Amino acid sequence: MTAYAVAHMRSVRPHPEIGRYLDLVCDTLDPFGGRFLVHDSVLDVVEGSWPGHLVVIEFPDIAAAHGWYDSAAYRAILRYRTDHIDCDVVFTPGVPDGYRASSHH
């Protein structure tokens, strides 16, 4: 089942290493079938507040998401992001086709 890596980037401190991360990150996603769905978008907040930016990456399944995050290639560039961006990152599975919220009691 499709899975997603979701990142809430609360605070970004500009630095050249962020550019390096952006230059390299797609190559780390490719072997795991990862692709950006949302990247640093301007959000239209309709309830509450959302300080920061949002990133959503789709993977074929949760194992692929973990495989990417734990890979040597990604670990080699991770600090380029974490040293300069305060961020929460979660992985979540998607829901099956035809899912109805009412079935989740």
Rank of each mutant, 00 (worst) to 15 (best):
H84Y: 15
V56Q: 05
P51Q: 13
L37T: 03
D40T: 09
H105G: 15
G67L: 05
G33S: 08
R10V: 06
P16F: 06
E58F: 13
L24V: 12
D44I: 07
L24P: 02
V46F: 10
A3K: 02
L22A: 14
S71R: 10
F36W: 08
F91G: 00
G48K: 05
F32G: 00
Y69P: 08
R35K: 08
D61V: 04
Y21R: 03
Y74T: 02
S11Q: 03
P14L: 12
D44W: 00
S103Q: 06
T92I: 15
D27N: 10
S11W: 02
R75A: 03
M1D: 03
C87W: 06
V6R: 00
G94V: 05
A63C: 12
M1W: 04
T28D: 09
T2Y: 10
F59T: 00
A5S: 07
P51F: 09
I85R: 00
R13I: 08
V90H: 07
I62R: 09
C87M: 13
P96I: 07
M9P: 00
A76L: 07
H66L: 12
Y4I: 00
W50V: 07
G98H: 07
R13N: 04
A72R: 15
A73W: 05
H53T: 13
A63L: 13
T2D: 07
D70Q: 15
F91T: 03
A73T: 04
Y4R: 00
I62G: 09
D86I: 07
G94R: 02
P14R: 12
D27L: 08
H15Q: 06
A65V: 06
H104Q: 12
G52Q: 04
I85N: 01
T2I: 01
H105Q: 09
P93K: 06
E58Y: 14
T2L: 11
D88L: 05
C87T: 14
S71A: 11
Y99P: 03
G48C: 07
W50P: 01
Y4H: 02
E17S: 10
V89C: 01
G33C: 11
Y74M: 05
C87H: 06
V95F: 15
R79F: 14
C26Y: 11
I18C: 08
M1G: 00
L24A: 11
T92S: 08
W50E: 03
V56Y: 09
H39R: 14
P31M: 05
D44A: 06
A65H: 09
D70V: 14
S71P: 10
R20A: 11
S103K: 04
C26Q: 12
S41F: 08
M9V: 01
D61H: 13
D88T: 09
